[in-house]
Amino acid sequence: MSTRSTPRSTLSSTAPAAVRRRALDGLPEIDRPTEVSTTDAQALSTALFTRLESLEEGTPEHAYVRNTLVELNLSLVKFAARRFRNRAEPTEDIVQVGTIGLIKAIDRFEVGRDVEFSAFALPTIVGEMKRFFRDTSWSVQVPRRLQELRIELAKAVDTLEQRLGRRPSRAELAAYLHIGEESVAEGEQASNGYVARSLDTPTSDDDSALTAGARRLGEEERAFELIDSLESLKPLIAGLDARDRTILALRFGEELTQAEIGERLGLSQMHISRLLARILDELRTGLVEDHDSPRRAAAG
Rank of each mutant, 00 (worst) to 15 (best):
G213M: 10
A277T: 02
E231L: 00
R170T: 10
L248D: 01
H271K: 15
H271F: 15
D207A: 02
G218Q: 09
R166Q: 09
Q141W: 00
V184P: 15
A196R: 08
Y194H: 15
I247W: 01
E219S: 06
G218S: 08
L217V: 05
E225K: 13
R264D: 03
Q269L: 13
V157M: 03
T211W: 10
K155Y: 11
A249T: 00
Q189Y: 13
I151V: 08
L248G: 02
T159P: 01
A175I: 06
R134L: 14
E263L: 09
I179K: 11
I272A: 04
S268E: 12
F133D: 09
I272V: 12
W138K: 03
A154L: 04
A196H: 05
L153R: 00
L217G: 07
G180A: 11
E254P: 00
A242H: 14
Y194R: 15
Y176V: 01
Q141L: 02
E182F: 07
I272P: 00
D206E: 12
G193H: 01
R222N: 05
P235L: 14
I247S: 01
S204I: 01
S191E: 15
G213D: 12
A212G: 10
V184T: 08
L177F: 07
G262T: 03
L275R: 07
L210K: 14
G239E: 08
K234M: 13
D241R: 10
F252P: 15
G253R: 04
I272E: 04
V184G: 12
G218E: 08
E182T: 05
S198G: 05
R145D: 06
V140A: 03
L173Y: 03
D158M: 12
R216E: 04
